[in-house]
Amino acid sequence: MGRNRRHLITLTFLAAMVATLVVAPAAMADLFTPESGGSSNADRISTLYLLTFLVGVVVFIGVEGTLIYALIKFRARKGAVAAQIHGNTRLEIGWTVGAAVVLVVLAVITFAMLPGIRDPSNSAPGAAAALASPVAAVGEKRVPPDGKALNIEVNGQQYLWRYTYPDGDDNNLNNPFSYEEMVVPVGTTVTLDIRSQDVVHSWWIPELGGKMDAVPGYTNYAWFRIDKPGVFHGQCAELCGNGHANMIAKVRAVSPEEYREWIAEKSASIQAADEAAAASRERLAQDPNATP
């Protein structure tokens, strides 16, 4: 095989790789990148992944190419004599420094992209922003630059997710809540306080960003901002027992008006239930034998 032909094959191979990776990322997203499309942090993680992956592809082709070339070119043949080389200090220092440089580049890219992934953005102006209220940055909790978000508490329990929504007052006992499906307004930045009441779980909706563990005794934080109505699926990502595979989660993004209505409905039904409970408590207090 001629030198030119071999070069041609290598080049074609490289071009094909680059084409698949760069020209058709949408079609290949399923194969080559993490889920994204729901919230900007998920998109940025996907981009950061892709950049790292491309660096990895270069390293991969370099190493595997060298390996295959060496195995073919230097296979034992009649009359071939192995070169008795023990090392080459300059070469060895070279590739050590080379590896370090690649890692420094990756670290720089990561630090440049980290804030966009970790730190919540502001809500979209208008009706969406109106649903955000001031949240305090306590401990590791990060808040949007304007200090306002819709703060929802996520509570993991075998094998359910419970969401508690803010209602504007300090009493957390009468807040609207839901299980499994979280309803959020589009455009509003949602910050999550993630807790667990039994074992370790992990909150994860792939299209809305990374997962965060729910560890009993600790609070973990996450955020997302969905800009188009839709439903996003996810599930518990940390083994939590026999029902782990069925501990699913859903986020439904609706318009701010619909969200207001949904919350009002929830509040009303909770209030009705509370009043009914209070009435039956009253009855029981007067006559312990009454039917509650």
Binding site: I45, G56, T110, L114, G210, A237
Partner: peptide, 14 residues
């Protein structure tokens, strides 16, 4: 290396 980048690992972990 990919999973060592912690923001990426938030997606890939577990």
């Amino acid at each position: 290396i990919i999973v060592a980048i912690f923001p990426v690992d938030w997606q890939l972990h577990d």
